[in-house]
């Protein structure tokens, strides 16, 4: 999943979408994921990194992660064509 290239993400988790003028808040984990996605990391890789770094098992994280990606999609923050 690719984040639209003109979406701005600040370090403290503030997201601005110039296409719509909408802005969003992210919590720390969400900000980290967004940065990884922006830098082109694969989804499977992100899951591995998180399960290692955080106190969470892979299945739980995977569920939360795809729920989160669903929200990014809902807010139109991702490119239409995947990959």
């Amino acid at each position: 999943m690719k984040i639209k290239s003109n979406i701005a993400v600040s370090d403290n988790g503030f997201v601005f979408d110039p296409n719509t003028g909408d802005s969003y808040n992210l919590n720390n984990t969400a900000a980290e994921i967004l940065q990884m996605l922006k830098s082109g990391k694969e989804e499977t890789e992100i899951i591995k990194v998180f399960a290692k770094k955080y106190d969470v098992d892979e299945t739980t994280f995977e569920q939360n992660f795809y729920d989160f990606l669903g929200m990014l999609n809902h807010y139109n923050l991702v490119e239409e064509n995947r990959g």
Partner: peptide, 14 residues
Amino acid sequence: EKLRYERPVINKIK
């Protein structure tokens, strides 16, 4: 030691 996990969330600012 692993960091405390919080599930990722995005909230639209109204």
